Amino acid sequence: MRAVKLVIEYDGTSYCGWQLQPNGITIQQVIEEALAKMLGQAVRLHSSGRTDAGVHALGMVASFKTAKELPLRAYSDGLNCLLPPDIAIREAAEVPLSFNPRADAIGKHYRYTIYNAKRRSPLMRLTSWHLRGELDVGQMREAASYFVGEHDFAAFRASNCVAKTTVRRLFAVSVAKEGDSVIIDVHGSGFLKNMVRVIAGTLAAVGQGKLDAGAIPGLLAGGDRAASGITAPPQGLCLMEVFYRPFISR
C-alpha cells in the first residue's frame, strides 16, 4: 500500500465546489472518477479542505491510498489525460501512509482579486470581482493590518458555518495594486467558511469609503456578522498554496 499526494489546479466556474455532493458535479468527483479509470478500482480522495462553487485553486492538496505500483508520472501526466481542461494535476508525490492533508497542514495562502476599472473585462469576469469606483488601496492596507494575529473571526464567517471555535490566526494580510487589479493575499493557519471572502468584502467597503479602516478592531471584538462587509463573490477567490512541514518520502 502506498499514499500519493496530489497538488491540483482548477477553474471552479463549472463546478459545485470541491466536495462530493448529490446535487451537482464537483472537482473531487471528477478526479476520483479519473483515478478509478486509471486504477481499475474506486478511490477516495482526502483533501486539505474544501472550496465553494465558483472558487478556484492553484494549489489544492489531496491524497489517496492504493496498492497499485504505478510510476508517479501516471498520477500527473497520465491522470491529466483523463481530466477535463479546467482541472489539472500539477504535482504527484509519494508520502507516508500517515499523511493527512487536512490535519497536517500548517497554513494556507488564499488570494482574492478585485478588477477595479470603469468597464468590465470579459477575460477577468470568471477570476475577479468587478468594482467600478476607484478603491483607496492605502486605506485597505491599513484595514488589512488589523486582521493579522489571533482573533475571534465570528463577524467574518458564513451564517451556516459550523466550526466549533471561531478563533483563527492570520500570519499576513496584504493589499497590492497591479494595473487594474487589487490583489488581497491572506496567509493563515486555518479559515472559517467564507472567511476570506468576507474579509475581501470588508476591505472593499473600506476602499470605497463605506467603512473606516479603524473600524476593523471593533468588528473583530463585536463578533457581529451584520456589521462587517458583504461576502465577496466566489470567482475572485483562489486557493494558492497549502503548507506542510517537511517529511521524508520513502
Rank of each mutant, 00 (worst) to 15 (best):
G218L: 02
P233M: 10
G59Q: 02
V148G: 04
A92K: 00
D136C: 02
M1L: 12
I230N: 11
M140W: 06
S47I: 10
R250Y: 11
V61S: 02
D136Y: 03
M195F: 01
D77H: 13
R90D: 04
P101Y: 04
I248P: 06
M38Y: 10
D77M: 12
M140E: 06
I248V: 15
I199D: 02
G133I: 10
Q28W: 08
T113L: 15
Q208M: 14
D52R: 04
V198A: 07
S47A: 15
L58G: 06
Y15C: 11
P122S: 06
A158I: 01
V43M: 09
M140H: 07
K68M: 15
N100E: 13
R90V: 00
D152W: 04
L211K: 07
G190C: 12
E150F: 07
N100I: 05
G207E: 01
T66A: 04
P234V: 04
G222F: 07
N23G: 02
A215H: 03
L170A: 08
F191L: 05
I216M: 03
Q41L: 05
A200D: 00
G133S: 15
A154P: 03
M60I: 03
A42R: 15
A74E: 13
I230V: 15
R157T: 05
D104A: 08
L211M: 15
G17T: 09
G218E: 13
M240P: 08
M140I: 01
I184H: 02
P246F: 09
G201T: 10
N80W: 04
Y15Q: 04
F99L: 02
L211H: 03
G207Y: 01
K37P: 04
C16D: 11
D212I: 00
E33N: 14
G138I: 10
D77T: 13
L126E: 13
C16W: 11
T26P: 00
G201L: 08
E134D: 14
R168A: 02
P246Y: 07
P101I: 12
A213E: 12
R44F: 00
R102N: 07
T166F: 10
I89E: 00
D224F: 06
R90S: 04
G133E: 15
R102T: 09
Q19F: 00
L72F: 03
A92T: 08
P101N: 05
G59S: 05
H130R: 06
I87C: 02
E91P: 08
E94M: 11
V55M: 03
L192E: 06
L126N: 14
